[in-house]
Structure formats: C-alpha cells, structure tokens
C-alpha cells in the first residue's frame, strides 16, 4: 500500500515537473523556431514548426549586417571590461575586508550592501547627471562604470566570504617564504578561489550582457548600442521584424550558454582541499 502510494506520488510529481519544464522551455523553443523562419510565416495559421521558409536566411542577414555586428561588438567590449574590472577591484576589496581591520569597516560594508537594495530606476537620473558631467555620455565608459556599481557589491560580498574560509596561515606562509601580501593574494588565494571566481564572473557577465535600462539611456547613437537595445530597435512604428529579433536573441544568448557549459566543472568546489587540515 505504502509502495503504491509512493509510486503514485512519484508519477504525480513527475507530471507536475514536466508541465513546469514545458512552461519554462516554451519561450526558448519558440524563439529558436521563429529564428529560423521568415517574418511573414511566423503568425501563419495553423502554426507549423517547420514550414517552407525554414532556414538560416535571417542569421545570414544578421551576421552580414555591419550595424547588427556592431551591437554584438559593443556588448562584448562592455561585458568583458566589466568582468575584468569587477574581478580585479572586487578581489582586492574582498581581500581587504577579509584580512584587515580598518576604521569604518562595518559602515563601508553596509554601504556596499545597501547599494544593491536601491532600485536601479532610482539611480538612473543621478547617474545620467554624473556621466554627462564627466563627459562620458554615449561612450563605453558610461556603461562600464555604471555596470560596475551593479556588479561590484555581489563580487565583494562573495569573495570576502570565500576568502574568509581560506586559512590566514596561507598568507602568513607566503610572507615568511619571501613574498608580499600582494603575492599571497594573486599567487595563492586567487588560484585556489576558482569556483567562486567563476560564479562571480558569470554573474557579472550576465548582468552586463543583459542590461537594458542604462544602456538605453546612457548611449545615444546606433554605433554605441548593445544587443538588448539593438533587438529593441527592430520594433519600429510600421514593422516588427520578429524573425530578426528572434535570431538576434538566439545569437545574444549563445555566449552565456557557452560560458555556462565551459565553466560548469569549475562550479564543483574542492579546489582548496588539502591546503589545511580538514
């Protein structure tokens, strides 16, 4: 009786999970299918998964259009810069939080945390003012600097937590062996923090890659736009180019997908085991 009940609950659970999976996957599948179709066929009735327009034509159109390619280039430049700067600044800040005590440490920490709690829309106008005042409007730096504000708190908090788990004797050991604190950080702590760095790096990349609001306001000319804005630009007064939007969305999602697949193994922690007794 108990066994039959167990089996029944397992079946029910599976059905519910499958329904959720379909619900979650449907937009992605729809995006994929539409990206291979021509615009006129997308809303054809009855809908077909594969019709006569099915092919790579839209992708060719995107990849041969210098304006669209520029969107991708801009996104890559901004995202890569944000990841690199976030990690460099974040790692050093986290080291300071983890290893030193200094005046107002708690206050500074609270400010960093609270930045994340403020809705981004509230920061839009102040940032706009600052960026214009710094004469950075419509430049890569406008986006890079504002994205750093979004990504750094998470990076600092995560890395501080991770460094706290690493024995201070590692730093001491490097200093006695003849190295500096800088060497201890970059030569020992950072290499053994790969799992944390990968997850922080991915989060940072995703944040910068997907950001829409600031990219829309802080850039103006088409040659400075990033992919999310580029996709939106396809919606015009007279024409919605759905197939183009979908293929750009697919191409826009690919880097994140590839990064996830590539770095998956690093999520498995344990890199630091063996450093100290445990």
């Amino acid at each position: 009786m108990v066994r039959r009940q167990n089996k029944l609950s397992k079946v029910l659970l599976s059905i519910v999970m499958i329904l959720f999976a379909i619900y979650a996957a449907f937009p992605i599948v729809w995006m994929l299918i539409c990206s291979f179709k021509q615009n006129d066929y997308i809303f054809a009735w009855p809908p077909k998964i594969i019709d006569e327009s099915f092919g790579l034509r839209t992708y060719v159109r995107v990849l041969t259009d210098p304006v669209k390619l520029r969107f991708f280039l801009n996104s890559y430049i901004v995202s890569a810069a944000v990841v690199v700067l976030t990690l460099i600044i974040g790692i050093m800040a986290a080291y300071a939080f983890s290893r030193f005590d200094f005046p107002l440490k708690k206050a500074v920490n609270s400010i960093i945390v609270s930045v994340q709690a403020i809705p981004q829309i509230c920061l839009l106008i102040p940032y706009m003012g600052i960026i214009v005042a710094l004469q950075l409007f419509n430049t890569y730096w406008a986006l890079i600097l504002t994205y750093l504000v979004m990504t750094l708190p998470y990076c600092i908090l995560m890395m501080t937590g991770y460094f706290n788990t690493l024995s201070k004797e590692l730093d001491d050991s490097v200093r006695i062996d003849g190295g500096s604190r800088f060497r201890a950080l970059w030569g020992v702590l950072v290499p053994i923090s790969t799992p944390a760095l990968v997850s922080v790096g991915l989060y940072t990349f995703m944040t910068a890659w997907n950001e829409y609001l600031f990219a829309l306001v802080l850039t103006q000319t088409t040659n400075m736009r990033t992919i999310p804005i580029g996709i939106n630009l396809l919606i015009t007064e007279h024409n919605y180019d759905w197939s183009m939007m979908m293929s750009m969305s697919v191409l826009g999602s690919l880097p994140i997908l590839i990064l996830f697949l590539f770095f998956q193994k690093y999520f498995i922690s344990g890199m630091s085991s063996g450093a100290i007794k445990g």
């Binding site: 024995s167 004797e169 001491d172 050991s173 062996d177 003849g178 190295g179 020992v188 053994i192 007794k277």
Partner: peptide
C-alpha cells in the same frame, strides 16, 4: 623588519600548503 627579510622559516599547525 618584514617577515621575508628576517631569514626565518615557519611550520604551521595547519600545514598551510599551497593546494594548487
């Protein structure tokens, strides 16, 4: 003087080996 300039070496309770 900085630890590195004192020409000393130290063995720690937790070994403090570099795991990578």
């Amino acid at each position: 003087m900085e630890p590195k300039d004192r020409d000393i070496a130290m063995v720690f309770q937790n070994y403090a080996l570099y795991p990578h």
